[in-house]
Design a protein around this nucleic acid. Structure first.
Lengths: 166, 166
DNA sequence: GTGAGTGATTGCGAACTGCAACTGGTTGAC
DNA sequence: GTCAACCAGTTGCAGTTCGCAATCACTCAC
């Protein structure tokens, strides 16, 4: 699973880590779905990831420095935590979501969130990254008394559902 | 090569088209490298793509509506052209490049371009998309007398090389 | 100690990848 | 017209990865 980069291009460097059909899905579930455990990622995944693929991708993401894993022994509940590098994939997720929303068929409920994120960036994206830093790295946000970005995202989502219909 | 989406998620929808180790590389060479022909993409590729993989990816990209292919018969020089959907992957490329630049080793010469793009967005990105629309779709830019975005990118690149050293 | 829950690993056939050779056609010089 | 060079792929093969299901080793509550 180790190999030197195919080229020195920044896009290629990113693709070598993120450019496979499952890695981004796992990362999406950690970032947007709040999944932190193996079982959680395995059973609550919309695309039906296989357990061996999940195991290999989590290992790869830890190796690449996008996630850390607390040293739980076998049988104990292990927790996966985003690193700064992992948190910074959020803009990539948002760009992908914006493209998918515009150029691919999506189910309406899931599309609303992607639309809010696509239209609210880059400020909303920065706030969401701060929120992830608080949850995963224990770094306090700047204005912790204001509603969190994810909370506002949820509210906007429900408002859109209510007014726009299904 | 045809299959229904694994889920209705916008990110997954994008990943199903773009999320493999070669598709994004081919698209990058078309967008940033100006490659329009099979031989060009095959021989001037930094990562050393194989001909069968290139053929399958070009077919897939045409099927997915990111590229079109003029109907040249066998033996004639076929030209691939970006569609609007293909042009709109540019923000994804920029986000990936920005991430790769920050979190992966890259060669300095190639990194400068990624840095300029990462710092100049979103205005520069919009201008570059307009330029791609002019080249690939024949849509005139708004202010065609000003220097093109790619020209300014090239100038900034050379200035950075000159002042910043290698 | 028993049973439910944890994070994985193993085994298997099918699909995809990288490599090299080959196909069927066009283009251009002579 | 002929021939070499070029063009866009295709084909065949060995090795790797994938999807699927079963299984493993371990912990924790009771």
């Amino acid at each position: 699973m180790r190999s030197e980069p195919r080229s020195g291009c920044a896009i290629n460097a990113a693709v070598e880590v993120l450019g496979d059909p499952w890695t981004l899905i796992v990362l999406r579930d950690v970032i947007f779905g709040g999944r932190r455990h193996f079982r959680d990622l395995l059973t609550r995944n919309d695309e039906g990831i296989a357990s061996n693929v999940l195991a290999s991708r989590l290992r790869k993401l830890v190796e690449a420095g996008l996630l850390t894993r607390d040293d739980a022994t076998r049988g104990q509940k292990a927790t996966y935590t985003l690193t700064e590098a992992g948190i910074r994939t959020l803009p990539v997720m948002v760009a992908l979501g914006a493209w998918g929303l515009r150029h691919r068929p999506t189910t309406p409920e899931l599309a609303v969130r992607a639309r809010i994120l696509a239209e609210g960036s880059p400020h909303l994206v920065n706030e969401l990254m701060d929120e992830l830093r608080e949850i995963h790295l224990g770094v306090a946000r700047e204005s912790p008394k204001s509603p969190t970005a994810s909370e506002r995202l949820r509210q906007a989502y429900e408002a859109a559902i209510a007014t726009g219909g299904p």
